[in-house]
């Protein structure tokens, strides 16, 4: 086998809970296999060194301050490949809730009379600021998908995030539909790739991977009505992860 030169890999986090990096660190034996293929030079959850010489950068978290913007642009200049890791980085995630109210009001609510001392901007997924080469959706990321993406990076192949609904994978797993159980589930509008992870374990889909490109709003509304769910109900569910894209989704669903 041809010896690959080991690419240097760094992990950086912005506004997030670091849970996706934790998933990575918790990968088990696959992580050891990965270290045969890559040099991890910067990953503060698992090591104390913080190398600044890297080719591949995993970015966790959303961009929410002017400083974040400067920092991510510096990373982009160095890295050959940028990988958005997790819901915050790919779609804004939970932090997107800030975008629902005017920035000044949000600041007041959180910081009270210290609001003036805080720099904050609207929540943005990473690709709104710099070019992103690979997307790993999910809150947290799904390890089999992480491994698939890493292999694509190493082989220089693009990774195509599925553009069909979670239902497709859910049905292959032969789950009983959540709607059969009178639960509202975001599977029909949410991008697959997680192997219907939550539903396999008896939960429902919370839409952490974002909407499919073409969510069929007319049909979707019919379905919600039939099951006695209002559009506001579902939009509320959707804002948990997708508020930074709120305007787009409002438009898609409310048209």
């Amino acid at each position: 086998m041809k010896k690959h030169s080991k690419p240097k890999v760094a992990f950086f986090d912005f506004t997030d809970c670091e849970g996706c990096q934790l998933q990575f660190a918790n990968m088990g034996s696959a992580l050891l296999e990965l270290t045969e293929l890559v040099d991890i030079v910067n990953f503060r959850e698992i090591m104390s060194e913080a190398g600044e010489d890297y080719e591949v950068a995993f970015i966790e978290g959303s961009i929410t301050t002017d400083n974040d913007v400067k920092r991510i642009k510096r990373i982009r200049e160095k890295a050959k490949a940028i990988i958005s890791l997790g819901a915050c980085a790919t779609i804004g995630g939970v932090n997107g809730i800030k975008n629902r109210s005017p920035l000044e009001l949000a600041k007041q609510r959180v910081y009270g009379d210290k609001a003036d001392t805080v720099n904050t901007i609207k929540t943005m997924p990473v690709h709104e600021v710099v070019k992103v080469d690979y997307f790993i959706n999910g809150c947290p990321v799904y390890i089999p998908e992480v491994i698939s993406v890493v292999k694509c990076v190493l082989m220089g192949k693009p990774y195509i995030v599925p553009n069909y609904a979670v239902c497709v994978e859910c049905k292959m797993n032969e789950n009983v539909c959540r709607y059969e159980k009178d639960q509202e589930c975001l599977g029909p509008v949410t991008r697959a790739g997680c192997n219907s992870w939550c539903i396999n374990y008896g939960n429902k889909c919370y839409g952490c991977r974002g909407l499919v490109d073409n969510p069929a709003s007319a049909g979707q509304k019919d379905i919600l009505l039939k099951y006695g769910i209002t559009l506001d109900d579902i939009l509320q569910r959707f804002t948990l992860y997708n508020d930074s894209m709120g305007e787009k989704y409002d438009k898609d669903l409310k048209q």
């Binding site: 239902c167 497709v168 049905k171 539909c177 599977g187 069929a216 007319a218 379905i223």
Partner: peptide
Amino acid sequence: GRRCVACGNCTAV
């Protein structure tokens, strides 16, 4: 077509 949301359930089953 207006009602379908392309979830793919019908073809899987």
